[in-house]
Write a protein that binds this DNA or RNA. Structure first.
Lengths: 193, 193
DNA sequence: CCTACCGATCGGTAGG
DNA sequence: CCTACCGATCGGTAGG
């Protein structure tokens, strides 16, 4: 990924695109829809961006990097599996709050990437999942995590947090700290008392 | 919803459409893609179906009915909140196994319905969620469910099951009974030992 | 169930 | 950043 500086105008376009992609999905969002939101003609978008798919790529890979960096930080700051899992859970929730639209696009729209970006993306995602899964396996080996299939635990945990990206609005729902506390308790300790 | 008999050919088209809509999403699936899968020209599809959106409607409302009927059955067969929740969890997993593609479309593609079907669909979904949420509230009142926001519990529970629709293949993963047992344990009793 | 075709819309370019 | 425009593809229809 090249890292040229991004102009403010370009950033506005990216943000508007993330919101539209989240709400309608990537294929159902037209460049004319996007242009209207940023008060431009569709053709003028191309002075700032290369293509529609470049926008999608930017969102997918930007968040792949954020999750990779988050994983690195968590592994550096914590050594016990249980603490690592708790920290990752909080990190996922913070990502949902700070980068709601672009993380939703990262979660749901990556399949519309074309080759070779799709393959590159899947490699990054696989690496993240492998890291996470091995933390879970460590927790099981230490007798602190329920001894179930690590793959099932991983996907269920990630899936349980997914609604937050789609549906949580900090201004409407509970405060972020309350949400984090309730979700941690629910996921880590279970539905039943 | 009218209930005219559905010809075998029409059913084949619906099934093929469900698989394509699940894999690529509704907007990114063209009628020419669909025609190719069922060995027809695109125009010939219209001898069997009314429109592309009619296919989407069929899948969305068919499953809305299945979930409504499932909810009715669970409430008839069980009276304790905890048993009802356990039965609903098993019911959701059975739906994922029996109707994988069409339930994924129901979950993810309903937003592409147009008026007034979108509004009608949301009413049905809301009713289901209200039923489910009040069972959770009953469980909390009875001291059997963790006393958290019922809305958070509901969406987290439904979300935790969602990956199964997208990713579970009975022929590759664990047997359905094992999956059900592990998922129940994980969701109901939590990640931590 | 096909061939032939329709108007609308798509992502994107040329040229200023 | 706009006007003007391109070829491709879309969902769908006419007519047999």
């Amino acid at each position: 990924m090249e890292n040229q500086p991004i102009s403010p105008k370009k950033q506005r376009i990216i943000n508007a695109a993330a919101t539209l992609f989240r709400k309608r999905g990537y294929p159902a969002t037209s460049m004319r829809d996007l242009a209207e939101v940023v008060d431009l003609k569709a053709s003028s978008l191309y002075s700032h961006i290369g293509s529609k798919e470049e926008l999608l790529r930017q969102m997918c890979f930007e968040n792949a990097e954020r999750f990779r960096d988050g994983m690195t930080a968590v592994k550096t700051e914590h050594s016990a599996p249980v603490e690592r899992i708790q920290a990752l859970l909080h990190f996922h929730l913070q990502m949902a709050i700070d980068h709601r639209s672009s993380v939703t696009v990262f979660n749901d729209e990556w399949r519309h990437l074309s080759s070779p970006f799709l393959e590159e993306f899947l490699i990054l995602r696989k690496a993240y999942e492998r890291d996470f899964q091995s933390i879970i396996a460590d927790g099981i080996a230490a007798g602190q995590i329920r001894p179930l299939e690590p793959q099932i635990i991983l996907v269920t945990l990630l899936s349980a947090l997914r609604w937050v990206y789609d549906a949580y609005k900090p201004e409407r729902g509970p405060a972020p700290e309350i949400l984090k506390a309730q979700l941690s308790e629910l996921v880590l300790r279970g539905l039943f008392v």
